[in-house]
Computed example of a mutant assay.
Amino acid sequence: MKKSLKVWSALIFVLFIFPIILEFIPSETSGETAAIGPLNNQQLVYATNINEPEPQPQPQPQIQTAKRALLFSTHSHEAYEPITQQHDGKIAVSHPEANIMRLDETIKSQLEFNGISTEILDVDTTSVMKEQGIAYHKSYDVVRPYVQKSLQKGNYDIIIDIHRDSLKADKTTLTYAGEKYAKIVFVIGGEHNNFKVNQELAERLTTELEQMVPGITRPLVFKAGHGVDGKYNQDLDPSLILVEMGGIGNNEAELNRTSAVLAKAVSNVLQ
Rank of each mutant, 00 (worst) to 15 (best):
V93G: 10
I116G: 00
S76P: 05
V93T: 15
I116E: 03
F72I: 00
I50W: 12
A79R: 07
E52C: 06
Y46W: 06
D124M: 08
I63F: 09
E105A: 14
T65V: 10
N99W: 08
Y80R: 13
T118I: 01
T74E: 04
E112P: 01
S73C: 08
S127E: 15
E119S: 07
R68D: 04
K108P: 02
I50M: 07
P53T: 12
P53H: 07
I83F: 03
I50E: 11
A98R: 10
H77G: 05
Y46R: 07
K90N: 08
A98G: 05
H95L: 06
Q56N: 06
P61T: 04
I63Q: 15
R68V: 01
H77S: 09
R102E: 11
Y80N: 14
A92Q: 15
E81G: 00
A66R: 13
N114F: 02
P82Y: 10
Q64M: 13
H87V: 00
I83Y: 06
Q58K: 14
S109R: 13
D124W: 04
S76I: 11
D124R: 11
L70Y: 05
P96K: 10
P59Q: 01
Q58W: 02
R102P: 00
R68C: 06
A66M: 10
A69Y: 02
F72S: 07
R68M: 08
T118A: 13
P82E: 10
H95T: 03
T106G: 09
D124H: 12
G89H: 00
